[in-house]
Design a binder for these strands. Structure first.
Lengths: 188, 188
DNA sequence: GTCTATACAAAGATAGAC
DNA sequence: GTCTATCTTTGTATAGAC
């Protein structure tokens, strides 16, 4: 294994949090999935809180990179919003996992301030990006009936996370599609 | 205490699940809040899974009663949807708690089939009721720009649960208001 | 970096007295 | 119904060998 054990642990932990919640997985779970002893996990992540922080940091870096890459493509606002929906659809893994941010929100009280600030950062990045795209959607006419861009952004993000919850509650991807149908319908 | 210990336990447990998640509270927590020993809790609820089931059953009964009472008032569709938003606003307890259903959805894997079916029932009741109200909103003209009622219902529920998550993530009720602003704007 | 061994606390749960 | 006492398992974490 060697140096990429740390990455394997992060991958396993992210999957665990997204599918069972922060309080719903243990180092023993990671141990059996990655193939190292729990003591070894503590070498890479001294505490579970530490691991949680690393998870949210990596998650936010990924988000920023994805959104930047999407902006660089210079396509219509509608097309970018469609790709944004795809992110959440893929992130569901057929009803197995939620947005890391949603999972962590529930366990709020068990988390350190550092994780909470990363949680807020995820939302800030998302809302600012969506607000910008809705403003552009008004200009290029690719998105139907846009209200106040900031409010559109907030509702959009909420509906997407709610759509993931719907699919997860019933382990049924059609619930996700049913929920985002109206959103997709607004995009040319 | 006597006979209403069971009710006090249910109240305490509901608050616990909604603010810390199913895997985030223990019988010890209930013990110190209600003022009975953990062994006594097992008398009322033999297992934690049993307690979870009781919680969701009571929650669904409350939902059904509330929606029926609301329908009985025979007010406009818009007014009923406004009251429905109020339910979720009050249920937040200033960013402390989520809909029980959302909390349980995260801990899906830790739950028994019985709880999962109650979870589905909560969503069915909600979606059917919303679909009906949106259909009536089309007829009485009190709700603006209605698409397919079933899809409106799904998006509405998702956005409300997402709005709760937003408020909880930042412990800030204005995040809830920001998220439901567009929804309120559609109601006469 | 990973292991074995172990410490220590907390969890869900049961037995039996009152 | 509630208590004390106890069991068993699991969870996070550390010490020290390799």
């Amino acid at each position: 294994m060697g140096t990429d054990t740390k990455m394997a642990l992060l991958d396993s932990a992210e999957k665990a949090v997204r599918s069972r919640g922060y309080d719903g997985f243990s180092y023993a779970d990671l141990s059996s999935e990655v193939g190292v002893r729990t003591a070894s996990i503590h070498y890479h992540f001294p505490t579970k809180a530490n691991l949680a922080t690393s998870l949210m940091e990596r998650y936010n870096e990924m988000l920023e990179a994805d959104l930047m890459a999407l902006d660089a493509k210079a396509v219509s606002a509608a097309k970018r919003l469609r790709t944004h929906i795809d992110r959440y659809r893929k992130g569901l893994f057929d009803g197995e996992g939620l947005c890391l941010c949603v999972s962590f929100s529930i366990s709020r009280e068990s988390l350190e301030p550092r994780v909470l600030s990363e949680l807020k950062r995820y939302r800030d990045i998302s809302l600012n990006w969506l607000e910008k795209v809705f403003t552009e959607g008004k200009a290029d006419g690719s998105v139907k009936s846009i209200g106040h861009p900031r409010q559109e952004a907030a509702t959009w993000l909420a509906a997407l996370e709610g759509a993931q919850l719907a699919a997860r509650a019933e382990k049924d991807m059609t619930r996700f599609e049913e929920t985002v149908a109206l959103m997709l319908g607004r995009l040319d």
